[in-house]
Structures are given as C-alpha cells and as structure tokens.
Design a protein around this nucleic acid. Structure first.
Length: 454
RNA sequence: GUGGAUGUAGCUCAGUUGGUUAGAGCACUGGAUUGUGGUUCCAGGGGUCGUGGGUUCAAGUCCCAUCUUCCACCCCA
C-alpha cells in the first residue's frame, strides 16, 4: 500500500491502552512532585535558536530540530551561502527557532525572564515532550517526554537530599528496583587535577563513564586516544578500580584527590549529602560512583543517575547541580539543581517487568445497551442517574445487534452491562449483567447503583 | 554522523536454484444463535510483495538507488 500514512521516524502514536499506562506514570511522578512542594510550569515547544544553541555541546547542536522561518525565507538568505550549499551557515539565515532539546535550558530562560515574578528558592516541575534529531534505537526516540524537577536560587545541599528522596519515592511507588548513583563534578575535576591533566577533565570523564559498559582495558585505550599521557593513565587506574561501599570509596578518594582544591570540596559535599540521608530510610540504594560523568557540560556539583536494577536500558532518571545556567541568559549567581525522569524509558521498564497495575485497563464501568427508539429515552434517564452518581457509563449510540454491543463491552473491558427492553421498561427492574462472572439479574436503578459502585 | 540487518494482508510471519492465479495464524465481517460477549463450528472480504529504476522470455525472489523499522557505534532520557 503506497499511500499508507505514517509518522516521522522516532515518533510514536499512543492508543488508549498506552495512554492509561502513561498517565499512571505521569500522575505517580506528579503526586510526588506536589508532595515535596514543587509547582508546575510549561514552556513552548519551540524556543529561539539563540536560547538553545551552544548549551549542549557540539553534539547537542547537531541534534537540535530547527524550524524554517515563515514566508519567503529563501529570498532573504545570502546568495553566496546558498551557492556554497553550506547547510550549517544557511541554517542560521533561514531558521531562527528550534524545538526544545530538554526542559532545563528553557527553564533557565524562564527563570531569567520572569525573575521579578518568582520568589526564590523557586521549586518547579515540568512534564513535557522534548525533541532530539538523534538516530532512534532501543529506548531512544526523537520525541520523548521528560518530567523535570528543579530548584533554583538555593545553594543548600538539602535540595540534593530532597531530590534523592523524591527519586526514591517515585520508584518505590512504581515498584521498580533502582540504584541511585551519585557523583560530583568537583570530584571529577579533582581527579583530573590529581593525575596532572586538569584541562582534560571532559575527556577523562567521558572515557571513565563507560567503565561498566566496555571494561577497564577499553577505557585505557580510549584515554590514550584522547591524548592522555601513559603516566596520567597509570595514576588514574586506582580511581577506576575503586570498588566497595560508599565509606570506603570516600576514604580512598580522600587519599587520592583530597589535596586538590576541587576534590576536597567535592568529597565534602558528597559526605554532607550522605550525612543528611542517614536520617532517612530509603528503598533504593544510593551508591557513590566516582566514574559517573553525565554528558551535559553545564553540571558543576552533584550529579545523579538512576538505573533500573532488573532491566538493561540505560538510565531512567538523571540530573545534577548547575551553578551558572542562568548566567548565560544574564542572571549570574543563581545556582540550581534538578533531575529529570525519562517517562518513556520508565514505560519500557514497567512493560518489561509487567508492573502496570491491572485496574488501569478500562474507565467505563457500565454500558447500557441500545434496544431501539422506544427504549432510548428511558435508557438515557438511567444513564443520567448513573453519571450523576459519579459512575462512568455510556449508552451505545446505535441500534445494532445485541451481540455486537456485548462484544463492544467485552473488548472495552467494561465490567457491567445494563439491558433495558420492553419488559424492563414496564417492570422497572432492569437486567444487570456482570461481564466478569457472566451472571445476570434484575434490579431497580437504585440497587444497580449500589451494586456497581465499588 | 558511521557500520550492519530489515520491509510480503490491519498484526505476526511462510514463500524452494527466478517459472502459471502469492499463503497461514491472529484480527475483521457475516452465519450457526432475530435479547447476550469472552469458548466452538462454517463462510467471506482484504495484497501494485516499502517506493523508484535496472537485468531477464519471465522478478516477491537477482542488481542499484531511496525511504522505513530494528541493532551496534557516537552521544543520550
């Protein structure tokens, strides 16, 4: 079929069954956000490219979806550039808007723009789709939803505590076993300083981040390729090999990087957060992982990543502290910290582990069958009574075979069916069929309401 | 952006070294059952074999291009 319609690569439709499950995820997350005092905001799907460009590194810029200017945009473009066919240069002339890449940068823009209307520390949550022109693959889409919580305008590490507790609570409610990994950019920069390659911090961390994926040898090889000296790699080995509990790791790290200025601060921050945490009982394990890096280069302090313990899918939640994100938009000195829940990956995890609650199947509780014009007004009054009682119910709109209507109820997983024919109208005793047991009996409306209500 | 695989009915897939009219299961529609779904039985509809070109007497099958989806890399939720 040639003209079968389709949707763009990496995007998806969500049918009713999927939406019910997705809403379960969103409402669970939202419940926790609200409980901790965070407030909702939304920002537009598109932002000015000047807001987005240069915030996600060179790779990130390539992954931005750009929107063509309206009108006759080509006539305003530079002829020489058009002739040159240089897409990159032309794009700045014919496009000035792009789809947002994440929710953090638009949030920073929002904070700067509305600084006078906000009271700080400002705690917000935001659950909206983001777009990346990535090549799609497993657990990776071009349009996906993020659920962000951030607090800006507070340096306190109590905010980190807040976030960790929220991550723990969300995944406890969703019944996903997770490991919350924590590290600190200052520790990473301390490591780079300690091995004598402070300017190579990004290279070192990016290579190190792959440790559990590719193994130590490949990490060494990559470090070498990235121009790290053998001497420095040799010094890095004890850091990479470092295993064991949080206390032990911190002690060893203290020895290795404790005398670098960044390293010392980083370790102190991690200790402080762990200290706060010790007063709480968490379901998930919080693990200090000195190899955790995270790509986004605006992070400056704590960084987090949550991995599902029972599914291989990459991280399902991540974030960290950024000290100067609003600075790029002209408001320096405002520190923020936040995490982002990947709703789509959480969906995949719940599907794989079969953890969606079963009652998420159907919303309609009662279907009233349509017997014909004679019965319609009677049926409608019953419908109204049920709905006034808050029972979600529907009346089949067409007079078709009972068999077809029953099948509709069955497929929509509607637990009760009411039949109102001539006989029922005369007696006022309506036939109520329980679709799960197959049992049916006659009741007056009031009894039906009692019966059908949970 | 790089490399590899894939595409046949709404869905999941068969289809021989190229050879007449391309099949199955599920789903759908009708009937057995004119007021009873989920089980069973019978019948039926539905395909330009992703698209465009090429080779050949002959292409679902071989070649090229293109798109889709998937997998890995880069990177990331």
């Amino acid at each position: 079929m040639a003209q079968k319609p389709s949707i763009p690569k990496g995007t998806r439709d969500f049918g009713p069954a999927e939406m019910i499950k997705r809403n379960y995820i969103f409402s669970t997350i939202q419940k926790v956000f609200i409980k901790y005092g965070y407030q909702p905001i939304e920002t537009p799907a598109m932002e000015n490219l000047s807001t987005l460009m240069g915030k996600y590194g060179e790779e990130g810029d390539k992954l931005l979806f750009k929107i063509l200017n309206s009108g006759d945009f080509l006539s305003k473009a530079d002829d020489a550039l058009l002739e040159e066919k240089n897409s990159l240069k032309i794009s700045t002339q014919i496009s000035e808007k792009g789809l947002r890449y994440d929710l953090t940068v638009p949030f920073a823009r929002f904070v700067v723009q509305h600084r006078n209307e906000l009271s700080f520390p400002f705690k917000r949550y935001q659950m909206q789709p983001v777009w990346r022109a990535d090549r799609p693959q497993k657990g990776r889409y071009r349009e996906f939803f993020q659920c962000d919580v951030d607090v800006v305008g507070s340096d306190s590490l109590l905010n980190e505590l807040d976030l960790i507790r929220m991550m723990d609570e969300v995944f406890r409610l969703l019944k996903i076993n997770v490991v919350i990994k924590m590290n600190n950019r200052k520790i990473l920069s301390g490591i780079a300083q300690a091995i004598g390659a402070p300017e190579k911090m990004m290279d070192i961390t990016m290579a190190m981040d792959k440790l559990d994926k590719v193994g130590a040898e490949k990490v060494y090889a990559e470090l070498h390729d990235r121009g790290i000296s053998d001497d420095a790699i040799e010094k890095l080995k004890p850091v990479l090999k470092l295993q064991g509990g949080n206390c032990m790791r911190l002690e060893v790290l203290e020895d290795l990087i404790g005398d670098t200025p960044d390293g010392a601060t980083g370790l102190k921050e991690v200790r402080e957060i762990l200290d706060y945490l010790s007063a709480f009982t968490l379901e998930s394990e919080v693990e200090v992982d000195q190899t955790l890096a995270r790509g986004l280069n605006y992070y400056t302090g704590a960084i987090f990543e949550v991995k599902a313990a029972d599914v291989k899918i990459g991280s399902i939640c991540g974030g960290g502290r950024y000290d100067n994100l609003t600075g790029i938009f002209g408001l320096p000195g405002v520190s923020g910290v936040g995490v982002s829940f990947g709703a789509d990956r959480i969906y995949d995890v719940l599907t794989e582990l079969n953890l969606f609650p079963s009652e998420a199947a159907s919303a309609t509780r009662v279907l009233i069958l349509n017997f014909g014009d004679k019965e319609t007004s009677y049926a409608l009054s019953v419908l109204q009574q049920l709905q006034q009682e808050g029972i979600s119910s529907e009346f089949y709109p067409d007079t078709v075979k009972i068999k077809k209507q029953m099948k509709y109820a069955d497929q929509k997983n509607i637990p009760f069916v009411i039949m109102i024919g001539e006989e029922e109208m005369e007696s006022g005793a309506l036939t109520l069929k329980n679709m799960t047991t197959g049992v049916q009996d006659k009741y007056v409306v009031e009894e039906i309401i009692k019966h059908v209500k949970k």
